[in-house]
Computed example of a mutant assay.
Amino acid sequence: MSLDTVVEDIRDEARARADETREAGEERADEIVSEAERDAEEIVSDAEREVERAIEQEREQELSGAKLEAKQARLEARREILEEVHDDVEAQIESLEGDEREELTRSLLDAAAEEFDAESVRVRGAEGDAELLESIVADYDGFEVGEPIDCLGGIVVESDESRVRVNNTFDSVLEDVWEENLREISARLFEE
């Protein structure tokens, strides 16, 4: 075997090994690229899911916020309507006149008078009811009309001797009735 033949065999063997190494390298490179592509697809898919979750969460928050705003606006409108109704009732009560006003005032004083055994009792009421109170109080022994108070009508009865004070003003009666019946009033107004 000649030297040229040996060199040629070595070259052929080196080329074969180089081809094998290149093929193995290319296969490994293809595997790495495939893995990288799979990883990239998974990363993109995860990112898309995360974005969709974030969008859905944002949408839910916006929807929840909008519902809360609408509920608050509805409650504010109801509160305003209830205030208007309350104001209308106050105006109607304040405008009571004649026999009806006298009858209501007398019944409130009758109810309050039961609380007093004192000899000196003051009956106070709205400034515009001074004459009415004078005529009603004349029927009660030991009762006198005191200084006027700021109210829609009715009476406040006081005695220094017994330290008892009964507030039977139209205002206090209205507030008691209003509070006791607010749920029913609201249900009727808003058809709940």
Score class of each variant (00 low, 15 high):
18 A>G: 14
105 T>N: 11
6 V>L: 13
93 I>K: 04
185 I>V: 01
108 L>W: 05
8 E>I: 07
85 V>S: 02
33 V>A: 11
52 E>L: 00
158 E>S: 03
156 V>R: 04
50 E>T: 10
147 E>W: 03
125 G>L: 02
169 T>S: 04
121 V>S: 00
41 E>A: 07
136 I>T: 04
15 R>L: 08
117 D>C: 01
91 A>H: 15
128 G>L: 08
90 E>G: 01
182 L>T: 06
74 R>W: 06
40 A>P: 09
172 S>A: 04
187 A>R: 02
190 F>C: 05
17 R>H: 12
13 E>Q: 14
41 E>H: 08
18 A>V: 14
143 F>L: 01
61 Q>K: 09
141 D>L: 06
22 R>E: 13
91 A>F: 11
147 E>V: 15
174 L>F: 02
63 L>F: 08
27 E>V: 10
91 A>E: 14
143 F>D: 00
50 E>P: 07
157 V>H: 06
84 E>R: 04
129 D>Q: 05
153 G>C: 02
35 E>H: 11
69 E>A: 14
155 I>C: 03
71 K>Q: 15
38 R>P: 11
120 S>M: 10
123 V>I: 14
180 E>N: 12
6 V>K: 15
128 G>S: 15
89 V>L: 08
146 G>E: 09
138 A>Q: 07
128 G>D: 13
1 M>E: 09
102 E>C: 00
163 R>L: 12
141 D>V: 08
78 R>V: 00
152 L>R: 13
55 I>E: 12
179 E>D: 14
56 E>S: 13
51 V>E: 14
53 R>L: 04
77 A>E: 11
18 A>N: 09
14 A>Y: 03
124 R>I: 10
21 T>R: 13
131 E>F: 06
58 E>S: 08
184 E>F: 05
79 R>S: 06
26 E>G: 11
122 R>A: 11
123 V>K: 04
41 E>I: 08
35 E>C: 10
126 A>T: 04
87 D>S: 15
97 E>N: 07
55 I>M: 12
154 G>R: 06
21 T>L: 13
5 T>S: 09
94 E>P: 07
157 V>I: 06
176 D>C: 08
17 R>T: 06
19 D>E: 15
37 E>C: 04
104 L>T: 01
182 L>Y: 08
117 D>M: 00
170 F>M: 00
43 I>F: 05
93 I>F: 03
79 R>E: 15
180 E>M: 12
67 K>Q: 06
136 I>F: 01
125 G>T: 05
